[in-house]
Design a protein around this nucleic acid. Structure first.
Lengths: 300, 300
DNA sequence: ATAATAGTGTCTTTCAGACAGTATAGT
DNA sequence: ACTATACTGTCTGAAAGACACTATTAT
């Protein structure tokens, strides 16, 4: 039985510092798609998927690359904290953001128990205005790709264990490094379980290789059933550009005619054209905001 | 520039208590599907979706119903904490669990800043062994349903705002109550935004009505592209039972022949039969563990 | 025999995949 | 004229949706 008469009374005596509390950070994975340079005046530029990382200028994990983030303030919501940190560290603003996953393993940070609530964020390359923030952290974009490099299947008496090794590659003009991630699917009895763990990740801080890998998976999945891709596009875009963005994220080629049929409802034609290179100009399209209505259910 | 020579040196001087930290809880939403009683000996029992709630015996929110959960220990992983709390409070064990969402609004708990990392959990009705834990908390199952009751669309100059009101109903033999949840989809300019908020929720503690609503949405979505449903089934089940579970969760009727074709690859026939009532006996099936292989990508 | 469920066959429409074809700017 | 891209038409086969039909048990 409670010693207090009412809730007001209870709250007056409540002392939050009685117990030890973990630290809570928010970390934001920012993706964008940009054009790679091209020499042939006729050829269209290739698209590349990029992720934003900052070089840690302090312990712990000093010198390693991390996704932007930091400790939350006691008086700000989680998403607000994510946006604030992003702004402080990288000057990126007005951006699509959604919660990704919360990482809280006991040993993931050497300082103390740190729970990291991570966010996935998308922006088009035009809105980029990345400079290092004034806290002496260096922000850079990295080309990112994740490929399945090995697969093992072990059959057990009841079910099986599937191990998938992914190579996560981050590179730009100045740096290049790899991480290896192991995804284990255990199917024994009733509940299949998925575990993601880092095999090696020398240049990425903490468990951030996992976050990038998982964010990429989420992005790929959502590409197929939401309108999330338009956060990576300019206001006006050609259908070929849109297709290229799909292709670089899904890491596979798509057939033009089929692609156009599939995304037809998501876009609206404009009367503008993109005339630039040595070939037929292409019509510019915009996102069709009414598309979201009927497809609202699949947004989670 | 850092004042420390190396990471070891840094960690020796690190004092986590320098800053104020939020509290962190884990809360787990547990769903199951059970048979409702039937009087007609021929008729199959109807299925109902249930959620597990506990009645809070202490401040804050004393007397209200809440999802089982509690504060994490400093030396246990998040999922482990969720499982421990579930076991302590409700005696539920060996259960499917996945992370749902992390709630961290500043004012969501009157005591202090509380970040709640929530989990979604599924179990079949056979595995139920719910008793109130020894900390004098009462656990009960509630039939749960969420229905769209009103929809408003406002057209703006650039885009629109869609407001959807859902009625969340919880009821069992002893209690019945409703919450109203407002889902607002704002589509202006580039980034569509979704906000979920509680309009009214008198008998549910904190923002738990939101969690139930969101968990139900997640369950509905995953039903369509994963094998998650089998966590709600016994080892052996009839195809009609499986269909009933789909129907009660999706809240719509399905055509038998089409349903069977759709789930054909996910199950394997056995030579057992369920002969019980005044009609043709039906074959028992099991989950086909090989199904997961090819469909691994869509698991997130 | 009857009531209720178990289980199958097939028609139609829709959609994904593959591929071949025509159109048009800039040099 | 040539090159690279823009854009469309159509065939095929698979899957989704709708519906009708047959089969089998306990009472």
């Amino acid at each position: 039985m409670s010693q207090f008469q009412n809730e007001e009374e209870f709250l007056k005596h409540y002392d939050a510092s009685k117990y030890e509390h973990p630290s809570v950070t928010v970390d934001t994975l920012v993706f964008t798609v940009v054009d790679r340079e091209t020499k042939n005046y006729r050829k269209l530029p290739e698209k590349v998927l990029r992720v934003l990382l900052i070089n840690r200028k302090d312990y712990p994990e000093k010198g390693k690359w991390a996704i932007p983030g930091g400790f939350i303030n006691m008086d700000e919501d989680l998403e607000a904290a994510a946006l604030r940190e992003l702004k402080e560290e990288t000057n990126v603003d007005d951006i699509y953001i959604e919660q990704l996953y919360t990482y809280g393993d006991v040993k993931r940070d050497p300082r103390t128990r740190v729970i990291s609530c991570t966010y996935l964020s998308l922006t088009n390359s035009n809105s980029l205005d990345v400079k290092a923030g004034d806290d002496a952290k260096e922000a850079q974009w990295f080309d990112v790709s994740s490929k399945l490099i090995e697969e093992q299947k072990m059959i057990l008496k009841k079910g099986y264990v599937l191990k998938k090794y992914y190579r996560l590659t981050l590179q730009n003009d100045y740096h290049e490094f790899n991480s290896t991630i192991l995804v284990t699917i255990t199917q024994t009895g009733k509940h299949p379980r998925i575990k993601r763990e880092i095999v090696s990740s020398d240049e990425l801080a903490f468990d951030h290789a996992l976050i990038i890998q998982y964010g990429l998976e989420r992005l790929r999945n959502k590409l197929e059933y939401t309108d999330i891709v338009f956060n990576l596009m300019e206001d006006y875009f050609t259908l070929t550009e849109l297709q290229q963005v799909y292709e670089v994220i899904l890491d596979k080629e798509l057939l033009k005619a089929n692609f156009r049929r599939k995304i037809a409802d998501m876009v609206v034609e404009t009367n503008k054209y993109k005339k630039d290179a040595g070939h037929r100009p292409s019509k510019l399209y915009r996102f069709n905001p009414n598309w979201a209505d009927e497809h609202f259910e699949r947004r989670n």
